[in-house]
Design a protein around this nucleic acid. Sequence first.
DNA 1: GCGGTGTTCTGAACCGTTACCGTCACCGTA
DNA 2: TACGGTGACGGTAACGGTTCAGAACACCGC
Lengths: 366, 366
Amino acid sequence: MKQRRPATLASLAAELGVSRTTVSNAYNRPDQLSPELRRRVLETARRLGYPGPDPVARSLRTRRAGAVGLLLTEALSYAFRDPAAIGFLEGLALSCEEAGQGLLMVPASPEGDQARSAAAVHRAGVDGFVVYSVPDDDPHFAAVRQRPLPTVVCDQPVVEGVGHVGIDDQGAMAGLGRHLIELGHRSVGVICMRLGRDRNDGFVDVLRQRAAHFHVQRARLAGLADAFGEVVDDWSAVRVVERFDHTLESGASAARQLLDRDPGLSALACTSDILALGALEEVRRRSLRVPDDITVTGFDCVPEAERLGLTTVRQPVREKGRAAGRLLLGSTEPGRRRSVSLPTELVIGATSGPAKATDAPWFSGL
Amino acid sequence: MKQRRPATLASLAAELGVSRTTVSNAYNRPDQLSPELRRRVLETARRLGYPGPDPVARSLRTRRAGAVGLLLTEALSYAFRDPAAIGFLEGLALSCEEAGQGLLMVPASPEGDQARSAAAVHRAGVDGFVVYSVPDDDPHFAAVRQRPLPTVVCDQPVVEGVGHVGIDDQGAMAGLGRHLIELGHRSVGVICMRLGRDRNDGFVDVLRQRAAHFHVQRARLAGLADAFGEVVDDWSAVRVVERFDHTLESGASAARQLLDRDPGLSALACTSDILALGALEEVRRRSLRVPDDITVTGFDCVPEAERLGLTTVRQPVREKGRAAGRLLLGSTEPGRRRSVSLPTELVIGATSGPAKATDAPWFSGL
DNA sequence: GCGGTGTTCTGAACCGTTACCGTCACCGTA
DNA sequence: TACGGTGACGGTAACGGTTCAGAACACCGC
């Protein structure tokens, strides 16, 4: 029954001897034509194998694609390994679902020249973009900004004319830092995620910390610096280790690097739970007791961390996704806030405890 | 500088005094015009704030959307809670990324009438569909089949004219069942995920098992029936409990229901690791030792299960995603296989052990 | 008989782009 | 000088719909 060329609105109309408008109305405005004619139209459509109005043509005319574009850090698949990113995605998917909008994950391959890379962004048929935690100088993000579409960023710096969702990373991390200070910790090692688009697995100087291209990491390190700057002579003497890959293994190897260099560390502060969980593995391997011998902290409060009683900072990842979606999809509302900052909570678990006396001069001085 | 009406290819061409074709070529076929003219075009585009050819119009003309549609079971956000689904997504995202294709998650709200529900599928501007583990009678899937697009299903029955990726769920589960039988287990309780689109938290008769709308669950139950049918008088006497939600809590409450009814059970076979992990929680709550007092098994081999040493079946979830993507995106190749079945592996962990003597009559008879 | 009021359907103008083919100037060659 | 080849660009026709302003017609009350 199917013809070589697939049926279109026009061919259906011709077959029925009615106008294209009428066929269109049969699908989109049932009240605009008699039930009898509508029945005939739909029946003929079925007979001819017409699947209904072409979505792309419809989008062109109506100027609405019915989908939100999502831009993630580099490798798309990376996101599916990070519990925090998954939570964000879940929240975003939820609010898209509520609004009946699709969610288009834009393929952003890291390699290749900038132009080819950004092409995927220009090829995306969407009504708006959500950009999640990409580096400040990301070419895809630049491409997104060229498109004349509403945009919301999350876990990135506030940008003029662009919606924003985030938390106070710096403040939250400073709070965690003060917790460590209260426990008497002075010699801490820090483990962070990658700070730039280049791979740099190793120690990080203050310059690189401050110039980090990833907002979140920059802010969290700054938060620690804020807190420890008060009690430590020189923050730049605190060793910070960076890892490109965000895996348990990275956390473990970073902890190894820190402890090899400075076995006397009384605490390891990590900028993510994944890294902290990895660090815990290495600590356990060394038969160090937590928190008696060493304190380990994370950030995010992923389920696994919560179960293990990791000291960390809880952030509402799912809510971030929902907020981003709502901000974008409700962006036509005029009185809408353009920036949302969500609350965090310091979660004191079983992996942080008082520093050993040797680490706290004023105790040993008694 | 920006005009009220956004710039188009045509307005750019008019401004430059060249044809639209030439402007189009400046973007898409740099070799078709002189570098000098191309430079002028691009420069004028920047000046006028023209963001490059409109993706939707381009898609209409070229008949390619540059994206793959993904249809998931009902609530989109559900997928982000199931580690197996996340693995699938990761694999699929990976192969889409390789091919430079976007991945559009179609919003498929469960409630609402069938017509409105399927509308999202008809609205999706994509070049093909991947359908993951939806019930056999899902209206969205029916809508997908109406669209004249290449389609690949995963964890669903093979359908004529549609690509297919899956594993031998029935055979794998039968293997697990034989493992339990070899250990002497005869009185087992079974915990499965939901079998239909209706909520039915409780015991399931054989009829409902066989009529399950979810292929995977149906197949896994059938696998257990295959194995135990050999040694148990009547499979229909084996208690099977169904849970609508796929959570740890569901697994725990299902285990509770089974053990309350029949405290003498020597094994709990679950059709997913999540359910099994939940069941383990309940078992632990009852101070039953695993596997001395009771054996618990899962299916999927998610990371958490692996770490805990759960006896389960490993299936290559990520590979399923990759295979689905490749099957779809390479579907133009003529000699391509239309159905892929991936291997599984029985993983014997620390949660399965010999049944207690009371459970094995021929032992106690010695 | 006439103006008013719906209902039902039509005509034509877009939406912004790319495919296809044609034109034209220019160049080297016999 | 005629000729075929080549590079650069232009014209036209889709691509498949939606939308808006009416046309045609029936019905109604006065």
